[in-house]
Nucleic acid binder design. Structure first.
Length: 371
DNA sequence: AACTCGGGGCG
DNA sequence: CGCCCAGAGTT
């Protein structure tokens, strides 16, 4: 190994030992904590994860506790964190670990890798952080650091690039220090070698950073842009209950697979493509709501526009127009359609994505004020 | 290799 | 408002 590499490993490890953050999942050495935190940290920032991790561990302190919980409970604990298949896969894997390995995460790369929701990155993270095995844990952060330090112009959006990075990352791990070193690599990416404005002056490895020396630190890593999300106009109904359902609104549960699987939401539908005049939008929307939900057994009478909401997923942009409605035919007797009347109390049990969480809170707050 | 899957933070 | 993500599963 050359001097540039030895220097990098030595200085980075030393820097980490002096600068490591005190994070909830670092307070105890517990493979289950490492596992849960790494799943939560996929595509998600540390500051966002912290409170979720604390609540999750309080609710499900062990693999067994998670395995024995009801799925709705796990989804509720994940509410607002996004990528909900992570939560379902995590629990499925916890049940696997309980049944197959007596509740202990195996110190075995192939077995860890075979668990649901654990891909190449998380395998490396668990094997190294929890078991100190010299496995690379290459995420976007690590690819950014390595791209800059070694001045690599490979497109990190390409699948093949990660293989190269993994080879390099493994080579850099100091003997017996995989756990600390891999965390150091990610810590540097999070605190110093940041995407937009890297703090090169305080960087512990600046002296031999090829990207910095070439003046290319802002051009690296090379990454092709993702295509923009597809816009979708949607009409949603906020249905006020009457009689025994007074003070409540109608919600429905999404299908078992696909976008926001098994999460709860306001009834809504994709706007028919009509290309109509803007003036006719309200009529068109209310008509679509009135007829569009009938196949599910819900017949509505839209009263008027209530509010608008937008939500961007990675590949879809929802523009949602929400209409106040009253019900003409309840879906009680309809099979398959999962509908429920809920008030603020019932919201505590059901898991909603943030878009609908915000709308429901706004609605109940407004209704509370108006009596 | 391309697509599906949330959400927030930041310049 | 564009751009950044501490990725994995499916096709």
């Amino acid at each position: 190994m050359n001097e540039q590499k030895r220097y990098f490993s030595r200085e980075l490890l030393s820097w980490y030992r002096a600068n490591r953050r005190d994070l909830p999942w670092r307070r105890h050495s517990n493979p289950y904590y490492t596992w849960v935190s790494e799943i939560m940290l996929q595509q998600t920032r540390v500051e966002t994860v912290k409170p979720y991790f604390e609540r999750f561990i309080a609710l499900f302190p062990t693999v067994e506790a998670l395995a024995e919980a009801a799925e709705e409970e796990v989804l509720k604990a994940w509410e607002g964190l996004g990528y909900y298949s992570r939560a379902r896969n995590l629990q499925a894997a916890a049940r696997e670990v309980k049944e197959q390995y007596g509740g202990s995460i195996p110190d075995d790369k192939a077995k860890v890798s075979a668990l649901k929701g654990i891909g190449p990155y998380t395998t490396g993270a668990i094997m190294s952080i929890a078991f100190n095995r010299p496995e690379p844990a290459v995420d976007g952060n690590v690819m950014r650091v390595l791209s800059r330090y070694f001045r690599l112009h490979d497109d990190i959006a390409k699948a093949g690039t990660r293989a190269h990075m993994e080879h390099l990352a493994q080579e850099l791990i100091p003997e017996g220090c995989a756990s600390e070193f891999n965390q150091a690599l990610m810590e540097l990416g999070a605190l110093v070698c940041t995407p937009k404005s890297p703090a090169c002056l305080p960087c512990p490895v600046m002296e031999h950073c090829a990207g910095r020396i070439a003046g290319e630190e802002l051009m690296l890593p090379v990454k092709t842009k993702a295509k923009p999300p597809k816009p979708e106009l949607r009409y949603a109904a906020i249905v006020e209950g009457a009689g025994e359902h007074a003070g409540k609104v109608l919600v429905r549960q999404r299908p078992d697979t696909g976008l926001l699987a098994r999460m709860w939401e306001l009834p809504h539908l994709l706007a028919p493509k009509t290309g109509g005049l803007l003036d006719l939008r309200e009529e068109e929307a209310m008509g679509a709501l009135r007829h569009g939900l009938q196949p599910e057994g819900v017949r509505l009478r839209p009263l008027g526009h209530w509010t608008d909401a937008e939500h961007t997923f990675s590949h879809i942009h929802w523009q949602m127009r929400v209409y106040r409605c009253v019900i003409e035919e309840a879906p009680d007797a309809i099979t398959g359609g999962k509908y429920a009347w809920i008030g603020p109390e019932e919201m505590e049990r059901l898991a909603f994505p943030n878009l609908f969480l915000r709308l429901l809170h706004a609605y109940f707050a407004e209704r509370g004020q108006n009596g």
